[in-house]
Write a protein that binds this DNA or RNA. Structure first.
Lengths: 140, 140
DNA sequence: TATTGTTATACTCTATAACTATA
DNA sequence: TATAGTTATAGAGTATAACAATA
């Protein structure tokens, strides 16, 4: 594939993905994106505010605020780190797990409706592409 | 395809697209998204602030601010509507067209780099999928 | 009266700088 | 001295309400 063809493909893939993301976002009413992604990150296991901040590439104060709000809403638990009295260990609470599942359901719901009009062949093509895209986007 | 399979596919496609969008956004330094999309919208032809606001699903004051900033930066032209003295007609300026092209180049550049590691077979699969996704997402 | 665009005001999420309490 | 988390303060971008000029 020539560089020009690659550039055109990149443009088409990017545009379709960004349109999709925007539509999903427009159809989301629950838990705000920045709080949702923190809960999703905590599925990998407990963490600290500082670690979450660097993983999400936001400032320490921004993450501190998010974590405080999530705690106020009962979506996470925070316990003192036994090894370091300055740090606190953040983990998903049962409510947080439920909120995460509900958020995913809502975010997927719009997508499901759109896919209902596709043929089985188109759906198979999308399944293959989703795998490739995920690999491409997770690289590095 | 069963409803469960459809839900799983929707989830995978959504996740891949949202990851991609986020990575593109993180690698964007020029023109902010809300200004960029206004310029892109104006490619379809001249418009008014009110029309742009409803097309972008943003409040009238928010769009007014965006349009004023774009005018200050010389990226759009505004002329009085000859048919209605309250309205002003907004259109892309030559600088605006250039900024749009530069913004697209920047946004695509990261994507091109990611695609370089793909096989030709994978690229063909993505081309097919991009077309399907665009159709799905543009529906309604 | 209704509508186009704007100003006034406030809320959310973000950032940098400064503080506290540990290490 | 350096680090984890917070508070103080400020800057984007957004919204609703109220206004001006015109329809």
């Amino acid at each position: 594939m020539t560089d020009d063809e690659l550039a055109e493909l990149a443009h088409e893939v990017r545009l379709a993905s960004q349109k999709l993301s925007r539509r999903v976002k427009d159809n989301t009413r629950t838990l705000a994106p920045h709080l949702f992604t923190v809960l999703a990150r905590l599925e990998d296991g407990p963490s600290t505010a500082g670690e979450l901040a660097s993983r999400e590439r936001v400032s320490a104060p921004a993450m501190s605020k998010s974590v405080c709000e999530l705690e106020d809403r009962g979506l996470i638990d925070r316990i003192p780190d036994p090894a370091d009295a300055r740090a606190k260990i953040v983990s998903l609470s049962p409510s947080g797990k439920a909120a995460l599942a509900a958020g995913r359901r809502e975010r997927d719901a719009w997508m499901v409706e759109q896919l209902r009009d596709c043929t089985d062949e188109e759906l198979r093509a999308l399944r293959v592409a989703a795998e490739i895209l995920d690999k491409v986007v997770s690289a590095e």
